[in-house]
């Protein structure tokens, strides 16, 4: 147990130590004052602007900024759709993958363009190398950059006075990719290759098994349909398996950005539980570190851009407190395991020989501590990659990642999107505080008035409405219920998790739900679109509105927003909104499962 807490402590220490300098570095990059050691990238940056016809000095109003953002994402979405549909006739397809179905292409294109990376497919059995690289990996970079650009525009809204523009979308995006995401990804990808993550264009390998295995499989007729006997029972045959296909591919380059860009879409179906994606304890540590690195660093970027480091630290502290508390709950629940096992005489105590607790669905290589840490990090951030199967977590252990997503992905959250989401909650917190003391709320020197609060309401309500309405639709319609693998409370949890994941742009799957159907591809596709773009538009509207305002001088009546009191108020706002919105739904899923498990002990 103490070993686990030491690992968590090390993680927190390294994360904070790296996030602070990275945050300061990013602030300089976004101000157009990149440090000298990356000065050699400047000609490349200028070249990109020349190639794209971008005027670097153009200052966009919020409307133009938002429209550029929407247009860029639409084009990216269409490109991924076309690649997925046409991959069968395109190069770099050694496994001869056919084009995907239209509904899967629609879902996947939205998923990667919206930084969600929900996957209704298994990577190694569905996507060609070209689709993975040119479609999915490119979107991993640019969707993260879009989130960072929107955040930077919002921060400028607080800094600027009576300004019409909030920056240049194309410039902010190019700088995010060129100076932040590309160098970090290159560094991480090379390190991961050193740890054994595959990076290859060669076709899948066929290898001889050391120990052949005999399996029973359905016997097929001439039309490849499963045969049945006179009583309707399936006919099976015994088959000796002597070979195994080992899927490879350009994985390391995708995994690096999938973690750093809070994307999460695995190259392989098992995601980071796959030994070719995550082979060693060190690769596991680096990958889980990469999940939170940029979202955490952006808090310090905010402090630097606002010229008040205390504000960035307060936002970081609010996120860290919730993260640590929920990590403790998840870890303790998983370590406690299933009480029914004791009745069967199983030893679930942690010892030097075993992790103990609930090891179902977990890699023995990573154990309970690293599986819980990953599950909490990946759902706190809008990452969504997994190194253990969340469907097999204990009810409380599974509730934690689900609730973290439902909080709106603001506990570190996505690259950029996490912090702009948290700032939206901060605006709500100062509004509530303003109501209590009877003053017009202010945040970071700007008056928060009716328009900003209307936009805050839109940004907070859209994901809640999307998740709850989507879940309700899925459980009342036959097409939705058909995907459930485990009927009852757990089946409800599977649906709630899937829609929460898509409706908050996370992308992790509880598993156990057959989601590659036209119904789910459409439902989850729209959930991802709504929660991404109907948040970006109101957030940019807030940025434009704030930029146009005069700064309000600090007075005795100003609520300080860098103090522990404000951190508590902010956490309270996030938790109350999350609890009020989702507690009834959680009560029907993981909470009832938890009670069932302990009642039958």
């Amino acid at each position: 147990m103490s070993n686990a807490w030491m690992q968590f402590g090390l993680y927190a220490l390294v994360l904070t130590a790296l996030a602070w300098p990275l945050g300061r570095y990013m602030a300089r990059v976004f101000a157009g004052d990149a440090p000298r050691f990356v000065g050699w990238l400047r000609p490349l940056e200028r070249g990109i602007y020349r190639l794209g016809g971008v005027r670097e000095d153009e200052n966009m109003g919020w409307q133009r900024y938002a429209l550029a953002c929407l247009l860029f994402n639409l084009v990216g979405l269409l490109a991924v759709y076309a690649l997925a549909r046409l991959q069968g006739v395109l190069p770099l397809n050694p496994a001869d993958m056919a084009g995907t179905t239209p509904d899967l292409a629609f879902n996947t294109a939205i998923s990667f363009a919206s930084n969600t990376n929900w996957q209704s497919y298994g990577g190694e059995t569905t996507m060609s190398y070209l689709t993975q690289m040119l479609g999915l990996t490119v979107q991993n970079f640019v969707s993260a950059a879009v989130g960072m650009a929107v955040l930077v525009a919002l921060l400028r809204g607080f800094v600027l006075r009576e300004a019409r523009g909030i920056g240049n979308f194309w410039v902010d995006m190019v700088r995010s990719v060129l100076y932040v995401l590309l160098p970090l990804s290159l560094l991480l990808a090379v390190t991961l290759v050193g740890q054994g993550v595959v990076q290859s264009f060669s076709p899948y390998h066929e290898t001889q098994l050391v120990q052949p295995v005999e399996i029973s499989q359905p016997k097929l007729d001439a039309n490849d349909q499963p045969m049945t006997d006179a009583s309707g029972a399936p006919v099976t045959e015994q088959v000796m398996v002597t070979t195994q296909t080992l899927a490879v591919g350009p994985a390391a380059s995708q995994i690096a950005i999938k973690q750093l860009g809070t994307n999460g879409g695995g190259f392989f179906n098992a995601n980071s539980a796959h030994p070719f994606e995550n082979p060693t304890p060190l690769s596991n540590f680096l990958e889980v570190l990469a999940i939170l690195l940029i979202p955490a660093a952006l808090c310090f970027t905010a402090g630097a851009m606002l010229k008040d480091a205390r504000q960035g630290r307060a936002l970081f502290a609010a996120m860290a407190v919730v993260f640590v508390a929920l990590l403790a709950v998840c870890h303790l629940a998983e370590q406690a395991g299933n009480p029914l096992f004791a009745k069967l005489g199983l030893d679930v105590q942690a010892s030097e020989l075993q992790a103990g607790g609930n090891m179902e669905g977990k890699e023995t290589r990573f154990g309970i501590a690293n599986s819980a840490l990953w599950a909490v990090a990946t759902t706190a951030a809008s990452n969504g990659s997994v190194n253990a199967m969340h469907d097999s977590f204990t009810p409380l252990g599974g509730l934690v990642p689900m609730w973290l997503m439902q909080l709106g992905e603001v506990i570190f959250g996505g690259a950029g999107s996490g912090l702009y989401g948290m700032i939206v909650f901060a605006l709500m917190a100062v509004f509530v505080a303003g109501l209590m003391i009877g003053r017009t709320p202010e945040y970071l020197g700007k008056k928060i008035e009716a328009f900003e609060m209307k936009m805050v309401a839109v940004a907070v309500l859209v994901p809640c409405l999307t998740v709850l309405t989507g879940t309700a639709l899925a459980v009342v319609l036959d097409a939705g219920r058909a995907g459930i693998a485990n009927p009852g409370a757990h089946g409800f949890s599977e649906i709630l998790y899937a829609v929460s994941s898509a409706g908050n742009n996370n992308g992790s799957a509880f598993a156990g739900l057959s989601a590659n159907t036209p119904f789910y591809n459409l439902l989850l596709g729209f959930a991802m679109l709504l929660s991404r773009f109907w948040l970006i538009v109101p957030v940019l509207a807030i940025a434009g509105s704030l930029a146009a305002k005069q700064r309000v001088p600090e007075s005795a009546g100003t609520l300080p927003t860098h103090t522990p009191l404000f951190v508590v108020l902010l956490i309270g706002t996030v938790v109350v909104v999350g609890a009020l919105s989702f507690l009834p739904a959680l009560a029907l899923g993981p909470i009832v499962e938890h009670l069932q498990m302990w009642a039958t002990r």
């Binding site: 429209l67 639409l74 109907w534 538009v537 509207a541 509105s545």
Partner: peptide
């Protein structure tokens, strides 16, 4: 089917783009 899904995507982005001037109108009214 391709046309159906493409129209859905285009429709969503057109609707999202329409939000932009609508929100700006709301802002100016403040």
């Amino acid at each position: 089917m391709d046309l159906f899904y493409l129209l859905l995507a285009l429709g969503f982005f057109a609707l999202s783009a329409a939000l932009v001037p609508a929100f700006e109108k709301l802002r100016r009214r403040q």
